[in-house]
């Protein structure tokens, strides 16, 4: 993977939500790199800043109340954060596309699937009606919704949950985007369907050579699909590495605890570990390392000094004063 081309880079991104005099620091300077043909899993609990990250990349952060306080998002030598809304529109859908969590809510109920695909083709690729419809038919075949194009004339409510998510994916990849954001794309689906959708995303990634940001709260799902994994906690990346290294040798206590909470056939009969407490609210992030109130290894230093994200020679990055130390569970 080392020779893969860097596609999109998030540098020191900081986001703050302002409600009156209250400031909530949703992202506190995160760095992420995305490569072509690579799925980068971003894992964290609800409220850790996963979705804010994707909204910033899409240029759809609602402002107010959201405000980008620092950083750059580099894509094709452009800092996306400096683009106007009009310029950003030519990236959205065209070069950077997105798949959402609940297809039944994120698809427009009043339009046929065909229309929801072709409107993008006509807008971004200037196709005429017939050509767009032909292409939409191909796309449906590509995502496994049949080659006869029957789904083109279906409304979202006529499709099952899995089919809707496939349709959503067809919409997202319609213009051959360079970069795809998948925000919990399988969370609303049955377990059996989850695997199919994950496989589909992998296949399409290879076929189209896209870089993928795969957001999930479920480390198990990320293990299935990702090539590289970053763990986010309270608006900061706490650990980041290739999947193999991360799962073989997690260094951050938070990552270890997350892994212990994945059900595993080898530990059948044992209680699943849970992490006490919850992600702190963005307007009340603890001092020092934000994880210290929940961390089994926390000491005085962790309470006052925020550890930096440091990488070792094989690119495994971790932000912890006690990286790699173990404790008695």
């Amino acid at each position: 993977m080392a020779d893969a081309k860097e596609l999109l880079k998030v540098e020191n991104l900081g986001v703050c939500f302002i409600h009156g005099t209250m400031e909530a620091h949703a992202l506190r300077g995160i760095d992420l790199s995305f490569y072509e043909k690579e799925i980068h899993g971003l894992v964290g609990e609800s409220g850790s800043g996963k979705t804010v990250t994707s909204t910033c990349i899409m240029g759809l952060l609602p402002s107010p109340p959201g405000e980008i306080t620092s950083g750059r998002i580099l894509f094709e030598n452009e800092n996306l954060l400096e683009l106007s809304q009009g310029q950003m529109r030519s990236y959205r859908g065209r070069k950077i596309a997105m798949v959402f969590q609940e297809p039944s809510k994120y698809l427009n109920p009043a339009f046929k699937i065909g229309e929801q695909i072709t409107e993008m083709l006509r807008l971004h690729l200037d196709m005429n009606k017939e050509k767009a419809r032909e292409r939409a038919k191909e796309l449906l075949g590509l995502v496994g919704l049949g080659k006869d194009g029957r789904v083109l004339d279906s409304y979202p409510h006529e499709l099952s949950g899995g089919m809707k998510q496939r349709a959503m994916i067809a919409i997202a990849i319609s213009c051959n985007p360079r970069f795809l954001i998948a925000d919990e794309p399988t969370t609303a689906l049955d377990v059996t369907l989850q695997l199919q959708i994950l496989r589909l995303i992998k296949e399409l990634k290879d076929l189209l050579g896209m870089g993928v940001l795969f957001i999930s709260h479920d480390l198990g799902v990320v293990k299935e699909v990702a090539d590289r994994v970053s763990v986010i906690y309270a608006g900061r990346i706490v650990e980041s590495s290739t999947k193999g290294t991360l799962f073989d040798k997690p260094l951050h206590p938070y990552t270890k605890l997350l892994m212990l909470s994945i059900p595993d056939a080898h530990r059948r009969g044992q209680r699943l570990a849970t992490i006490p407490g919850r992600v702190p609210d963005a307007d009340a992030t603890p001092s020092g390392c934000a994880f210290h109130p929940r961390c089994p290894l926390a000491d005085d230093r962790c309470k006052s000094e925020n550890p930096e994200l440091r990488g070792n020679e094989d690119g495994h990055k971790v932000a912890c004063h006690h990286a790699g130390e173990s404790w008695n569970i």
């Binding site: 759809l60 959205r92 859908g93 596309a97 997105m98 698809l107 427009n108 409107e119 807008l123 919409i171």
Partner: peptide, 26 residues
């Protein structure tokens, strides 16, 4: 305020299309 409006924006549609096509029909 519905979710499909976010999708419409993520598709790169103009605000005019988002509002007068996607939202209006519903």
């Amino acid at each position: 305020s519905k979710e499909y409006i976010i999708t419409a924006r993520a598709k790169g549609l103009t605000e005019r299309m988002v509002k007068y096509k996607h939202a209006l029909k519903n």
